[in-house]
Simulated assay, not measured.
Amino acid sequence: MPLAIFALTIAAYAIGTTEFVIVGLLPTVANDLHITLPLAGLIVSVYALGVTFGAPILTALTGKIERKPLLLGLMALFIVGNTAAALSPSYEILLIARVIAAFAHGVFFSVGATIAADLVPENRRGSAIAMMFMGLTVAIVSGVPIGTYIGQVFGWRATFWDVGALGVVA
């Protein structure tokens, strides 16, 4: 597989981790930001809404941009969102940061899948796409527990720093 497929897999891993890791960090975030646990739970919902509404809007707005620069821009948006989350001084800023990261999510997977398919011969396209999406699956199995552990030991912000760093690597 081309090296670019591994980069897509790492990006998918980072995106999958940031999507779900917050669930294990909610009590820590709530305590640190002095909010209730139910209010902290909205951080999960806001991310999901960002993916749901951001993907179709961004897809429509970016349809004429070449795929590689678009994918790099989406990863930059993802990195900015996670960095802003790590730096969030308040609950409101954290919500905005999560929405920014979520906007990259949906579009990344559609653009990334087409790029993965184009990087290999026609008979290997399914494997290339599966390899990219493996990053998402592995994130759920390992990224979320590791990220939760990091957040509980070093503070929830460390998890977002680490996920942002994964975005840079990708």
Rank of each mutant, 00 (worst) to 15 (best):
G143V: 08
L95R: 15
A117T: 11
V80C: 07
I129E: 04
R125C: 10
K68F: 09
L42A: 02
I146Y: 12
I79A: 09
S45H: 00
A104F: 08
A158L: 09
F53Q: 00
M75Y: 09
G147A: 11
P145W: 11
G147W: 01
I15E: 09
F154E: 02
G155I: 05
L37S: 00
L33I: 03
A4K: 10
G50H: 03
S88R: 06
A11P: 12
L94M: 12
L136D: 02
T83Y: 11
P121G: 02
I22S: 12
A86N: 13
L166E: 15
L58S: 02
G24H: 08
A116H: 04
F154S: 02
V80I: 14
K64D: 05
L72I: 04
I57Y: 04
I65M: 06
A128K: 07
A4I: 11
I57V: 06
Y13E: 09
R157H: 12
G151Y: 02
V51I: 02
L166Q: 11
S45Q: 00
F78K: 07
A116Q: 07
H34L: 04
F133I: 03
P69G: 05
G54H: 02
L25E: 03
A130Q: 08
Y91N: 09
G106N: 13
L61Q: 00
R157M: 07
I146C: 06
A85C: 12
G112H: 13
T17Y: 02
V23R: 04
G147M: 07
Y91K: 14
V46H: 02
F108G: 15
L71T: 05
G112D: 14
L71F: 03
I115T: 14
G106C: 13
V111C: 09
F154C: 03
P27D: 10
P145N: 13
Q152Y: 05
F133G: 08
A12D: 05
M132G: 13
S110I: 14
Q152F: 08
A104G: 15
A14R: 09
G16Y: 12
P27A: 07
Y13G: 13
I146Q: 05
A102T: 13
L119F: 13
D118H: 10
L26T: 05
F108I: 15
E19Q: 14
L74R: 06
E66V: 02
I22Y: 06
V107D: 12
Y13K: 04
I140V: 11
F154L: 07
P38W: 01
L72D: 03
G24C: 10
I15Q: 15
V29R: 02
T36H: 05
I65C: 01
Y13Q: 09
W156H: 06
G106K: 05
A128G: 10
L58V: 00
A165Y: 13
A85L: 11
H105C: 15
I57P: 03
L39H: 00
F160M: 12
A7C: 12
V80E: 06
L166A: 13
F20H: 11
D118Q: 14
S142W: 12
V29K: 01
V163Y: 10
G81S: 11
D162Y: 11
A113P: 12
L136F: 07
A117P: 11
P121H: 10
A14I: 06
G164Y: 08
L77W: 06
I146N: 07
A40C: 03
P145I: 15
G24I: 06
G147E: 03
V168M: 10
V141C: 10
I150S: 04
P145Y: 12
F154K: 01
A104D: 15
L25P: 06
P145V: 15
A170L: 07
A130Y: 08
T83C: 11
I115E: 15
